[in-house]
């Protein structure tokens, strides 16, 4: 197994709260890796660490051999040209149409002429079902459409690594099916390494080759989809079946509930 993203002994804090405590995980090249875990556990944070947008407090993140926290600005920007990221909010550029959004990375990073760029943009939009919406502004799209447009933009440059932050949220069953197929196809046809953050247990397990389950700042299990399904670990079982009670905390760290209700500090 060739490793594309290598996270070693990484710790990361927000204020004084440890989001990650000394985690180590590997993302294999050319595979789909699903990262799952309760809301607020730090999945988006992990993607930002991989993209080098935030630096770990200790440990390292290596992407395709480059240590992101020690890379120079130029190395970082060059490395990011080979990455596509679908933000949880979509983050389309609000002053450009859908077409211009998808065309921007091509205009900035390639020497293609306008006709070529137009064809690529239309192809990418076609693959997410939005070719007809090319002229719309982001404010005129629904949440699910905006996310699909953002996905088209993320894959415009045919990156080596694509990170999807909740691609299925807000999609109807048909669009979701199309996206699942698209992610699979990209992965197998173009040999892209994909990192998929999703709460959708069934969809994730169905397309992921490799799964990492995060809880409370640690990786509690990392393995194939089948290994996850067969795991007897109570934390894994709880997560897959969606029980509120169990070893995985559903609540953000807080003081004792009864005491707070009774007004005692």
């Amino acid at each position: 197994m060739e490793v594309y993203v290598d996270v070693k002994n990484l710790s990361f804090y927000r204020a004084d709260r440890a989001i990650y405590k000394d985690i180590t995980l590997q993302i294999p090249k050319g595979k789909i890796t699903a990262v799952m875990g309760p809301s607020g556990v730090g999945k988006t944070t992990l993607l930002r660490l991989i993209g080098g947008q935030i630096a770990p407090h200790s440990g390292s993140v290596t992407v395709a051999g480059l240590d992101m926290s020690r890379a120079s600005r130029k190395e970082l920007f060059d490395a990011r040209r080979k990455m596509g990221m679908l933000f949880q909010s979509g983050a389309l550029f609000s002053d450009m149409s859908v077409f211009e959004n998808v065309a921007l990375p091509l205009q900035e990073h390639t020497e293609f002429d306008d006709v070529m760029i137009r064809d690529i943009v239309l192809m990418k939009l076609q693959s997410v079902g939005l070719r007809g919406a090319a002229h719309l502004m982001p404010a005129e799209l629904s949440g699910g459409m905006a996310r699909r447009a953002a996905l088209a933009r993320a894959i415009a440059l045919d990156p080596d690594l694509v990170m999807y932050d909740e691609p299925f949220a807000g999609q109807d069953p048909i669009s979701k099916g199309v996206l699942v197929e698209l992610i699979k196809r990209l992965n197998h046809a173009a040999n892209i390494t994909s990192v998929l953050v999703s709460h959708d247990v069934e969809d994730s397990l169905s397309i992921a080759d490799h799964v990492c389950l995060l809880s409370d700042g640690r990786v509690i299990l990392s393995g194939t989809a089948d290994e996850i399904r067969q795991s007897k670990d109570p934390r894994v079982v709880q997560f897959l079946q969606g029980h509120a009670d169990g070893p995985v905390g559903f609540h953000y760290p807080a003081q004792d509930y009864d005491k707070q209700l009774l007004g005692m500090n």
Binding site: Q53, F77, D78, R80, R81, M85, F87, A91, F93, L104
Partner: peptide
Amino acid sequence: EQLSSYEMMG
């Protein structure tokens, strides 16, 4: 996150 988007796009 548009500024982050620019950064992630290089």
